[in-house]
Design a protein around this nucleic acid. Structure first.
Lengths: 243, 243
DNA sequence: CGCCCGCTTGAACAGTGTCAAGTGCTGTGG
DNA sequence: CCACAGCACTTGACACTGTTCAAGCGGGCG
């Protein structure tokens, strides 16, 4: 499909989030030290909670998520990832993860061994700091999710979730005319927002009927950004890392 | 009360969470480069969202929190901090924060200038990695909070919250006989758990009557750890960073 | 063609929020 | 020493949001 086999794997990394602070040299280093690039099928688990992890993964194409299971086997998504995101860079300092990492759609990923990252930390303070920064952006998003779950009702949560995805996808050039592909089931949205699938269905209908947004057939159309972002109390500052 | 004016400021840092990986040398360096140690009154705001931050703070004594406000002025706590926690180390790579940082009780803090941290990053790769690690532990806690809000009911959330505090305070020697001081109002617990103060009150009563735990007069007594941790689906692994 | 999965809808119900009133400390001033 | 104010906590009645359970729909794919 894409004719970009020569595209650098770091092409989307930190786009719109301080990428300009990465030197050409640093990007090249990352590109040249990639261990592996590969494709994963949809709904494939890449890392399981508790596993010892020896590589870290950058998402090049597709959607991934991180989640935790409760006692009854229900999932709670704790993060969703779009192209350009390091999905488990935190595994480098942590060694083990407290959650699973999986694809939501077919995905293309690049990975670096932790030995390579070790060497970067030893020799490249500025690049190290940018990698650190990128894991902290994830933490900002986590905090916003806590806010979303703690203070917003079902409509607000879904509105906020969609607003976040719109801005994040926009940063990597994946939104056109307020429209973007989102290969998620309603049940996935429910798992991300702490709701049941049934209720997500009802809220989506309401948002559609009130002409705020449409989510259908794996595609989102933002119809009324102003009202939607107000409903979700959405302020995109947290996605940019305050730079 | 405490006769430890000669105590190192880093005394509690990362205790129970990989502290043994910090060398004596590294701890000494941190101790010697402290910029300021000072006391803050209760309910004092240290950093406001959006402020440019030039120092980072380690909590020595007392309780602090980080929170975000919603449109109607209601708060959502996104983190709570106990002695030994760096409360805003993430401000070093981020420069600005997306949330406020405040004390919940009188507190004693130590701070380092970002210039000092910059120098550490330039010259001390291993220490840098440990500082990075410590910010990732915060992120683990964030994820657990997302899970708490998304998948647990009111009882589960409060049980989980109290279990987390018990383990974290235990790591820094602040629990005796399943009992610890917690200078929070019921309204604070509500803000941490995404509930109303009224409902927190009811749940606390129920937990007390069922002899799972007692929270009264700023003190928590865990009566039945097994049942309480089961109710909160609590597994402390995320607090130790998988080491 | 028929099955399966994801989406849709309805009805009854449970959990949590809201509103309002009341209790019991603790600290303060007369 | 008592009266009172203020604050956190407590309780009850009621409304509402979201869940649960159950049934039906529709389109893609073997």
């Amino acid at each position: 499909m894409r004719a970009d086999t020569t595209e650098r794997v770091t092409d989307k990394f930190l786009r719109g989030r301080g990428r300009q602070r990465l030197s050409e040299d640093e990007l090249t280093l990352l590109d040249q030290t990639v261990d592996r690039v590969r494709d994963l099928p949809s709904r494939h688990t890449l890392v399981r909670a508790g596993d010892r992890v020896r590589t870290s993964t950058l998402l090049l194409d597709g959607f991934m998520c991180r989640y935790m299971d409760d006692h009854s086997g229900y999932r709670q998504l704790v993060a969703i990832h779009v192209p350009g995101d390091f999905v488990d860079l935190h595994a480098f300092p942590m060694e083990r993860l407290d959650h699973d990492v999986a694809t939501l759609s077919p995905a293309r990923i690049a990975s670096w061994t932790h030995d390579t990252l070790e060497e970067i930390v030893e020799t490249r303070p500025h690049l190290t700091r940018m990698l650190w920064f990128s894991t902290l952006l994830d933490a900002s998003v986590h905090r916003e999710w806590i806010f979303r779950m703690g203070r917003l009702d079902a409509e607000g949560r879904i509105a906020h979730f969609m607003c976040e995805l719109k801005v994040r996808l926009d940063m990597v050039g994946m939104v056109e005319n307020d429209r973007f592909l989102l290969p998620l089931k309603q049940a996935d949205v429910a798992e991300a927002c702490g709701l049941t699938g049934v209720h997500v269905n009802r809220v989506l209908r309401s948002l559609r009927e009130r002409e705020l947004m449409i989510f259908r057939a794996g595609q989102v159309t933002i119809v009324n950004w102003k009202q939607l972002s107000a409903l979700g109390q959405f302020n995109p500052a947290y996605l940019r890392g305050g730079l």
